[in-house]
Write a protein that binds this DNA or RNA. Structure first.
Ligand SMILES: [Mn+2]
Ligand SMILES: [Mn+2]
Ligand SMILES: [Zn+2]
Ligand SMILES: [Zn+2]
Lengths: 119, 119
DNA sequence: GTCTTTTTTAGAACTATTCTAAATTTGCTA
DNA sequence: TAGCAAATTTAGAATAGTTCTAAAAAAGAC
């Protein structure tokens, strides 16, 4: 855990708004002005591959990053651009409701919802 | 419906393996050797915005395209790279099992599963 | 403290996609 | 069918998020 990785991780814990690498870079610079964008990407890769951070890809937009480790989906508000965590109701296993191919072993399930908030 | 759009759509109906724009380009050239990659993108945009084709984005890989209009998710086999349609079991509404934010109106739901097929 | 390995950094490179502008095609109306 | 306007196609340039490269710095082991 280097200084840079700690700053990146702290940025993600501090404000849970699913920032992009660029936004994380800008926030990290407040703590560590010498940090580079390449390092932000390197740190995010390290955190993601150690399963401490999730990478969230919606459409073809820049990746966003999430420190919420509970299984959850994402609601993308199309009016504001906000991305909000969506928990599954207690004890729900979504895969029960799917016609999965024979012998399917699931490593990862991703649920992305687009819409808006009425009123 | 131009010649080019018909060829692109036919390619998608012919082989339902979720090809990329590049693969569609290569297949379309067999029918219409003068077609350009920019046109493939233009045609796909037209088909997607008329809701005749779905664009499937998984991770940061090139977009894939799907002519299956039933609501379905995608299983991404990590051993082969294949992307397989996953139907929802009859009469299942996945949004029932989610803690959606107050007033959420859903425009689109995307479900991507990564894993492999045992045996 | 020295040596080895890992990480950081700046900048170049990469690549899927979009943009530009000219040529072609399409579809309408005469 | 001919003429015209609008839409589409095309080749190639541009864009942008991300990855790569190689040198410098930092970390970790002994
Ligand atoms: Mn952001
Ligand atoms: Mn392909
Ligand atoms: Zn999240
Ligand atoms: Zn599909």
């Amino acid at each position: 855990m280097t200084k840079q990785r700690k700053v990146v991780y702290d940025v993600l814990l501090e404000e849970r708004d699913h920032p992009t690498a660029q936004t994380i870079f800008e926030r990290a610079q407040n703590e560590l002005s010498s940090v580079s964008l390449a390092t932000i990407y390197n740190c995010l890769d390290a955190l993601v591959s150690h399963d401490v951070v999730k990478q969230v890809n919606i459409d073809r937009e820049p990746s966003r990053y999430c420190a919420n480790l509970c299984e959850h989906g994402h609601f993308h508000d199309q009016s504001t651009g906000d991305i909000i965590d969506v928990k599954f109701k207690p004890d729900v296993d979504l895969t029960q409701f799917l016609d999965l191919p024979q012998g399917a072993v699931i490593e990862n399930l991703e649920l992305n919802i687009k819409g808006f908030l009425k009123q």
